[in-house]
């Protein structure tokens, strides 16, 4: 075994450890925790972790709005300017892939990293 072998070994171990650090840092930054992601006309507006109770007003330039409330790990629309109020009537959501949709306002809230419900589709 040469001296170079030892240097190589050390370098690789350091590289691997640095890699581990980088990966865990990266995954911490791109949080895996359940969150509600709001979109307007397909464009992301904001991400709100379900673990923090909050109320967000998603307002558009034409004055239309949806109030997104996050409470007890679930997201729901509590008020909206749309005429049909289907989004307001929708139950709170928290499961993986579930969504709240307001078609008149082209507003969608989607749950990411939510709890797996084991259901492929819902009928309502």
């Amino acid at each position: 075994m040469k001296k170079n072998d030892v240097i190589l070994l050390a370098a690789l171990i350091v590289a691997a450890l640095a890699g581990f650090g980088g990966v865990s840092l990266y995954s911490k930054l791109s949080t895996r925790e359940p969150q509600a992601v709001a979109y307007l006309d397909g464009e992301e507006q904001g991400r709100y972790p379900l673990s923090e109770d909050t109320t967000v007003e998603i307002r558009q330039t034409d004055g239309s709005y949806n109030i997104l409330q996050i409470q007890n790990g679930k997201a729901e629309i509590t008020a909206a300017s749309c005429p049909d109020k289907v989004c307001v009537n929708h139950r709170p959501v928290g499961g993986q892939g579930e969504s709240l949709v307001c078609l008149p306002n082209k507003m969608v809230v989607e749950i990411e990293n939510g709890e797996e419900l084991g259901i492929d589709a819902g009928t309502r």
Partner: peptide, 14 residues
């Protein structure tokens, strides 16, 4: 010729 069999083997594995 920088490494012995050991170094070559490590590089191979990685």
């Amino acid at each position: 010729k920088l490494f012995s069999v050991m170094g070559v083997s490590i590089l191979g594995g990685v």
